[in-house]
C-alpha cells in the first residue's frame, strides 16, 4: 500500500493499545449497567401494573428509536444546565448503558417468554414465591436462549464506544483523531483502529458460540 509508513505505525501503536484498553473498559462498564438495568426494565414489563408496563414499554421504544449519539450529547450537556456536572466518562457510561439496557431488556424478555408455562405451574405446585420462581426456576432457564443476544449486544456496545469520542472520552477514535491532527496523517491511525476493532469483534462471535454451548452443558440442556 502506497505511502503506508511502518515506522509511524510503531510510533503510534502504544497510544492506540492504551486507547483500546479504555475502549474495552468503557464497553465493559456500559454493558454492566445495561445488564442490571435491562433486567429491571424487562421484569417491570411483566408486572400486572398496567400503567408501569405501559410507561416502561414506551420509554424502551423511545430510547431504541433515537440515535445513541444524540443521547450522549443530551446526557452530557443537559446536566450542567440544571447544575449537575457529569464527567465525559460518567455521561458516556450513563448514555450507552441506558441505550443498551433497552436492547437487553428485549433479550431478557425473549428469554423469559421462552420458558414454558408448565415451569411456572410446577413452581407454583411447589408453593414457591414469585421471587423464588424467578431466581431458582425461570431466570436460569431464560439465560440459555438469551446468550446469543447478550453476546451480540456486547459486541454491539463495543462497536458503539467510538461515539463517546464526541464528548472527549479518550477511546480509540478519539486517540486516532488526536494522532491524525498532530501528525497530519490519517491513513495509519484510522486503518489501525479498524483492524483493532476487527481483531476483537471477529473472534468474539466464535467465543459467544463456545460460551453458549458451555452454559447449555452447565444447565444440563442439549
Amino acid at each position: 500500500m502506497f505511502d503506508w509508513k511502518w515506522e509511524f505505525v510503531w510510533e503510534i501503536l502504544p497510544r492506540l493499545v492504551q486507547a483500546t484498553g479504555n475502549t474495552l473498559i468503557a464497553a465493559g462498564a456500559g454493558y454492566g449497567i445495561a445488564l442490571v438495568l435491562g433486567l429491571v426494565l424487562a421484569i417491570a414489563q411483566r408486572t400486572p401494573y398496567r400503567l408501569l408496563t405501559f410507561v416502561v414499554r414506551e420509554l424502551v421504544e423511545f430510547i431504541r428509536s433515537t440515535p445513541l449519539l444524540l443521547q450522549i450529547f443530551f446526557v452530557f450537556y443537559v446536566g450542567p444546565q440544571f447544575g449537575l456536572r457529569l464527567s465525559p466518562w460518567m455521561s458516556g457510561m450513563i448514555a450507552i448503558g441506558l441505550h443498551y439496557s433497552c436492547y437487553l431488556s428485549e433479550v431478557y424478555r425473549g428469554g423469559l417468554d421462552s420458558v414454558p408455562r408448565g415451569q411456572w405451574e410446577a413452581a407454583t405446585a411447589l408453593n414457591m414465591t414469585v421471587v423464588q420462581k424467578y431466581r431458582r426456576i425461570i431466570i436460569p432457564q431464560a439465560i440459555v436462549p438469551a446468550v446469543p443476544g447478550f453476546g451480540n449486544y456486547l459486541v454491539g456496545i463495543f462497536k458503539d464506544t467510538p461515539m463517546l469520542s464526541v464528548i472527549g472520552v479518550a477511546e480509540l477514535i478519539h486517540t486516532a483523531n488526536a494522532i491524525g491532527s498532530e501528525h497530519y496523517r490519517f491513513l495509519e491511525p484510522y486503518t489501525l483502529v479498524g483492524l483493532i476493532f476487527l481483531a476483537i469483534s471477529l473472534p468474539a462471535a466464535g467465543m459467544i458460540k463456545v460460551f453458549e454451548n458451555f452454559v447449555r452443558r452447565r444447565m444440563g440442556m442439549k
Binding site: 408448565g118 414457591m128 426456576i137
Partner: peptide, 26 residues
Amino acid sequence: GMCFQHFNLFPHMTALENCMEGPVQV
C-alpha cells in the same frame, strides 16, 4: 401437590435437585 401431563421437571436441575428444590427453598 401436583403432577402434570408434561412432567414440567426443571431442565437445569438433576433428578435429585428437582426433588430437593421445594424442600430446601420452600
